[in-house]
Structures are given as structure tokens and as C-alpha cells.
Write a protein that binds this DNA or RNA. Structure first.
Lengths: 201, 201
DNA sequence: CGGCACCCCTGACATCTGTCACGGGGTATC
DNA sequence: GATACCCCGTGACAGATGTCAGGGGTGCCG
């Protein structure tokens, strides 16, 4: 019997996955949580073999949760199950110690197979996604550029961002200009959009 | 027996919902589609009583699909099941003739009840969402403002938007300025963000 | 009919943005 | 030590943006 933990902030999706996986005789959903930061506690409490974790969640994201589980040295292996197949997500998830990464577009009947392979010790990655990740290139932004871009992403002015990050307005503009250059777009918003799409911020 | 159609572009979610609903003895999932524009055809082919439709989908959105079903005069009733509880979505869905609207945060065991009530002829709306919709106010934007805002949302310059919509650059700027004023924010991007959040664009 | 709201356009203005050249300071690598 | 990054800052410039005050046109409604 493979013991499973589900982490997803949407009740219907979580319930659906539970129903789906429970159809398999060798899989047993032993716990469900709706927030990323509840994952470590649930793992110590229920000792699952595999944790299926979403990335975008209300309380703490799934990559951080995965990193926490990895750091704790728990027996449980983490399988990321996410909506967005962003190359940056994949890379960051693997760095955080994830044992698998699939998108929610995966055919439903294949999920159980993936879970079994992960439980068996394999690393399972969505093949098309892995190709994208290799082809799409890596994040060219520096830490500061990412930070500034993130702060400016939802329409904050230079002055606001500068105050927020304790920087001079000129410096903020320089970082933004650099990010715009690296992403080869016209302005900060397009740059932020692209960076988000690629999973860089 | 209540016959169901599922429309969601994510295989795992669709499969999960199917598994979840199939646990109920009076519900029967007779068809599944992964695109909004396949909904009308699937309805004529399988004659379901209730269609569970997502909004954000790859091929044609769920509100358009609902409108098409309503226009066709089919016996089938549409229940929107979506990730985002945006007031604008709710309003537009109801205008398109939806018989129900729930978010994916809904507890899994309540979905079957909602489906039964919709099948029985009731209109079922997420209560907190309905409150938001009434309190949050209506879309203050004009058709043109919405259009211009949408075109400018992902970082296009004024010139680009103007060419795209066959307008003068000055006119575009006036529309944007007006939208910025109505949304009470600082710039077009924040305005677009807010409009998207509210479901206006 | 007169308002009223929307649409389209113009021109002008202050401000914000994106870019460039330039400087100084820190750290890691060879 | 030289080199190469990265970080932070300045000053200056052209161009984009947001705002305002106009002008005409349409259609709707009291």
C-alpha cells in the first residue's frame, strides 16, 4: 500500500484527486491539507510515502514546502502537481528536492503510474516540460533585478519601489532597464510578464 | 439518473471531478470535453441534464460556451465551476444564462448537492461571492475603455494599441487616462490588473 | 427639442520612463 | 594583481505617458 498526502488549496481539486487515486487498489490517501505551510506537520503526523503538492497555494507555495520536507530528511518523497508548466518552476522544484513534476494537463489515468514510479524511487518529470526547460534557457536576471521587477510588476511607480526596497530611484531604473534589456522587450511590465511566464519571479 | 457533462481543460481536474461525482449513485458523467468550443456539440451528442463548465479554458472561454448553450435552447443547464471568484465573472455568467456558479474552493462533498439543485431547476450561487458581487460595485468602464485596457494590458505601447484598434494615439491615451481615473490607480498597468481582478476584462 | 453619455480627434503641458555614460565599492576567480 | 561580476549611485537626454482643455460627431431619453 502506498500512502499519499495531498496538498492543494482548492477543495474540489483536492477532493477530485483523492477520489481518482482512491480508485487504485494500491494507493491510499491518508491526509489532505489546503496550505503549503501545513505540509511538514502533516507528513510527521501521517507518515505518507508520497506527497502530491501544488505550487500556487494560498498559504506558502509548494516549492518552499518541498524544500522544507527535503530539509527535514523525511522518508516522504514530493511530487509536484501544478497548473503551470513553467520552466523556472521545474528547475526550482528539482533544486528543492522534488522527486517528480507533472502538470495538471496530464491524462488522469497516468497519474497513478507516476505516483507508483515516484514511490519506487524514480525521478519522474513531464517530458515536454523537461525539453522546454532545456531549450528555453536559464534565468539571466540577477537577484536584485528579480526583486525590483517583482516589486514593479503590479504597477508600482519607481518612487514606490525605491522606497520599498530602500534604494535610490535611479538605481531602480537602472535595474529595470537592465532587466528590460535582458528580456528583450519594450518596458518593465512586458519584462515582468515574461519573467512570470518563465517562472523567474 | 442525472446526466452530466464536464468541461475543463485540465485532464487531472476533469478526471478528478468525474471520479468524485461518480461516487454518487444518482449522478452519471456521460461526456467530457477539454475545450469551451466543444461544449455545444457534446451537448447535442450526449444530451446531459447539467454541464459543469470551467471559465478559463484553452479553446473558448466557459462564459461564451454557456451563452452558446443558452442560445441553442438546449434542455441542458449550465453550472460554472471556476477557480476565480471574480464578481465580473459571476455577473457575466448569469447574464449568459448560467444556472449556477461555484468556485473550486467549495467543499468537495457539497458539489453533488449543488448539481442536484441545479438539475432540479434552482439557480445556485456561491453566497459569499454573491455578496462580493453586490458590494464590490459594477464595472464603471465603457466598452472602448475596456477594449483599450485589454490591448494595453500586457505591455504594448500606445502606438501599438492605436494601430491595432485603428485609433489615433491621442484617443488611446484619453481612454487609458479615463480608465485610470475610474479605477483610482496610478497607471494603465495597475488599472489593467485591477480590472482583471474584478473580472471586467 | 435640449441635455447627456459615449465616441473620436487635436494640441499642449508636466511628469515618468528607458537609456547611456560614468563613478565608487564589494566579492570571487584566475 | 588583474579581471569580471554584481551592487549602488549620479546626471543628462529623448521619448513615452498621464492630464487637461478644447472641438466635433452620434444616439438615447425625458
Amino acid at each position: 500500500m502506498i500512502r499519499l498526502l495531498l496538498a492543494d488549496d482548492q477543495d474540489l481539486v483536492r477532493g477530485g484527486l483523492a477520489a481518482l487515486l482512491s480508485l487504485e487498489s494500491d494507493l491510499d490517501v491518508v491526509a489532505e491539507v489546503g496550505r503549503g505551510d501545513e505540509v511538514p506537520h502533516a507528513i510527521t503526523a501521517h507518515d505518507p510515502d508520497v506527497a502530491l503538492i501544488d505550487i500556487e497555494m494560498a498559504g506558502g507555495d509548494g516549492i518552499e514546502a518541498t524544500a522544507a520536507v527535503t530539509a527535514s530528511g523525511a522518508h516522504c518523497r514530493c511530487l509536484i502537481v501544478t497548473t503551470f508548466g513553467r520552466p523556472g518552476y521545474l528547475r526550482r522544484a528539482m533544486e528543492a528536492g522534488a522527486a517528480g513534476f507533472v502538470v495538471k494537463d496530464t491524462p488522469a489515468d497516468r497519474l497513478a503510474q507516476v505516483v507508483r514510479r515516484v514511490a519506487g524511487g524514480e525521478r519522474v518529470v513531464d517530458p515536454t516540460l523537461a525539453a522546454d526547460s532545456l531549450a528555453g534557457g536559464v534565468d539571466p536576471l540577477t537577484d536584485r533585478e528579480r526583486e525590483v521587477l517583482r516589486a514593479a510588476a503590479d504597477g508600482a511607480s519607481v518612487r514606490t519601489v525605491a522606497t520599498q526596497l530602500h534604494l535610490s530611484p535611479g538605481t531602480v531604473r537602472n535595474h529595470l532597464s537592465s532587466a528590460i534589456g535582458k528580456t528583450e522587450v519594450e518596458n518593465r511590465y512586458a519584462a515582468a510578464r515574461l519573467a512570470r511566464e518563465r517562472g523567474w519571479i
